[in-house]
Design a protein around this nucleic acid. Structure first.
Lengths: 125, 125
DNA sequence: GGCGATATATCTGTTATCGATATATCCTGC
DNA sequence: GCAGGATATATCGATAACAGATATATCGCC
């Protein structure tokens, strides 16, 4: 079977997408994973093996800040290790990085478009 | 020093670019390499280590057809192994593949654009 | 004749990618 | 009350891709 036509999310695009998703509001990892799939109509996937190393990297670089939230259905036992959610929010540095990634993306697609148009563009000019 | 902002040509984009360059006219490897750099203003590079395996792959898949040309400055000795040029031309199958790669690229950029626009697009709609 | 550009091609050490694996909780149906 | 699937975070390992170095040989210029 030949390669699938549905494009996979590469690390560079994954960074852009994750930062863009966090721009609107803070999110935790699993929600990001769901949003990526939902908002790309299933074309993009961000599996755990790609998502969590990426989020750790972003945190280390100071592009996002993270804080834990303990999700407790009943508050009977405070020591009960309920489901944890690690919330990520975009930092000012992350916003600047996002702006740059968007600029990079625009430039990249314009260059590719130039090759697609080929000689036709220059001939008609 | 962090990652360079100039994007490198990945294999999938390299295939698109090479097929697009061959659409206008047949070319040999080194000319393709030069064109890639020239027409992207130096932003894209296609080094020998990436270019020749790719051309071999395209040839095996029947997307391009290749033929050798012997470049002889003087024709004194026919046995003299002059500089060889392997000319590649786009096949009908290659043209179809190019069309598909263009469609894939358009879809991909549209999806990324959707993430870049974010909630603003839906809010203003 | 030497040097840089032309021209094709392979090889290899490093990095990236993907799926599998691991752990633990929450919710729903039975 | 318990089994199974969804939720949630995180790591690991086999494979694949990448960039740069290496190899060979010719051509043009000085």
């Amino acid at each position: 079977m030949p390669e699938p036509t549905t494009p996979k999310l590469k690390q560079e695009q994954a960074e852009l997408v994750v930062l863009a998703l966090l721009r609107d509001e803070p999110k935790y990892g699993y929600a990001i994973s769901r949003d990526v799939q939902a908002r790309s109509d299933g074309a993009f996937r961000l599996t755990p093996g790609a998502l969590y190393p990426l989020l750790t990297k972003l945190e280390k670089q100071g592009l996002v800040s993270a804080s834990w939230e303990e999700v407790k259905a009943d508050t009977a036992d405070p020591d009960a290790d309920g489901r944890r959610r690690k919330w990520y929010r975009l930092s000012a540095k992350g916003q600047r990085r996002l702006d740059q990634r968007i600029a990079d993306h625009r430039r990249f697609t314009q260059l590719i478009d130039g090759f697609i148009e080929g000689d036709a563009a220059r001939a008609s000019a």
